[in-house]
Structures are given as C-alpha cells and as structure tokens.
Design a protein around this nucleic acid. Structure first.
Length: 191
DNA sequence: TGCCTGATGTTCT
DNA sequence: GAACATCAGGCAC
C-alpha cells in the first residue's frame, strides 16, 4: 500500500472501503515465508453503528479504529479467536473493515499446517483467516504499508461481481446490508 | 443440511 | 455477571 492509497482509504467511509477492498491482497511475512491471500469477503463498521466496537467511543480496545487509515485493528473474541480489520476514514472517526474471508494465493502449505485444514476451510471465516496468517494482538495497530504484513491494492471490482447482504454474528444493527463478498468466490464464509 | 453446544478470555454493565 | 464481529464437532433428520 502506497501513501497515496492510504490517503484514498482515509477518504472513504467504511461501507465504501469494504467494497473497495474486495479483490485486494494481503501479504504476510512470517517465519521467512511470504503468505498471500485475496480478500473476498468484508463487513463495514463505524462509530454510528451499534454493532461496532467504536460505537461507545474511543475505548482502549477500539482505539486503533480511531487512528490513521490503512492500519490493522486486531481484536480477541470468544476467549480463543482473533479477527482483523483494516482501518478506514478520517483520523478521529472510528471506522474499519472486518476481513471475513480470503482466497489463498501463495504459501498454502504453511496455511494448511497452521490451520490443520486444507482448501476453502483454511480461510473462509474471520478467525480462520487470522489463524492461517498468524495474526494476533501483536499486530494490532500495525501499518499495512510495511512488513511483516502489507496490503496491496488492486483495481476495483465491477459492481456486478459483488453481493451485499446483512452482517453475520451480530445482534445490534443486524438489518444493515454492510457485508460484501465476491459473488462467485468459493472461499466465502457460511451464512 | 441444519441445529445445538462446549471451549475459554476480555470488555463492559 | 453477561455478552461477545467464532469455530468445530456431534447428533437428528
């Protein structure tokens, strides 16, 4: 991700960024290996949204969501899982994009071992993706322009390639259509 | 295929 | 003390 691309993300609200990040790639360097995946499913969250961690203000946990765009917000949930978001929007306004699923492109052997699973079961869920890529709270606040985890932007997908639905696994604001996925991808999470 | 449940730590009320 | 942006395994149909 270049500085120019970071500024573009800064200028987007969470919903716009969630659509725009589909098709983009994450590159994770770990144990001398490079793991690469293509983002195929996202959800938008911001501070006006009761389901968002940023809804109750700038708490310690969600602080990174209020920081500069293009950084990684990692949280720990259900006592055993990590999930990651890409921060979007202006600094001071808490918004981000949950990365729910991705297609493995490079380093599949490493992801298989890390997950103990193969095929779409490696990365078709937010916590599965984090396990496959070795993402935990040590990467919270990391700048995605740098190693050991980078975001590589790709051309925006045509609108017809993207499906929008309600988000998964939330109880508040559950009727907002802020989940997006690549319609023909076989790596999208279950409903 | 679909529903139910256990695992297990952090955050917020 | 409850809720939680989840996952995997078990069992019924």
């Amino acid at each position: 991700m270049t500085e120019h691309e970071r500024e573009l993300l800064e200028g987007m609200d969470a919903v716009t960024a969630a659509r725009r990040l589909l098709g983009c790639e994450l590159v994770r360097t770990i144990e001398s290996r490079e793991l690469r995946v293509r983002i195929v499913e996202t959800e938008a969250y911001d501070q006006t949204d009761a389901a968002s961690h940023s809804y109750n203000g700038r708490t310690q946990r969600a602080d990174v969501m209020f920081g500069p765009a293009g950084h990684l917000y990692v949280y720990f949930t259900y006592g055993m899982h990590h999930c990651c978001n890409i921060v979007a929007g202006e600094e001071g306004f808490g918004s981000g994009v949950l990365i729910r699923a991705a297609e493995p492109i490079e380093g599949l052997d490493v992801m298989e071992v890390r997950r103990g699973r193969s095929g779409h079961e490696m990365t078709n869920g937010p916590a599965k993706l984090c396990q496959a890529l070795g993402i935990d709270r040590r990467l919270n606040g990391h700048d995605l322009a740098k190693s050991p985890m980078r975001l590589e932007m790709r051309p925006a997908l045509p609108a017809q390639a993207v499906t929008a639905t309600t988000r998964i696994g939330i109880s508040k604001a559950a009727d907002m259509p802020w989940r997006f996925y690549v319609t023909d991808s076989g790596f999208v999470s279950k409903r």
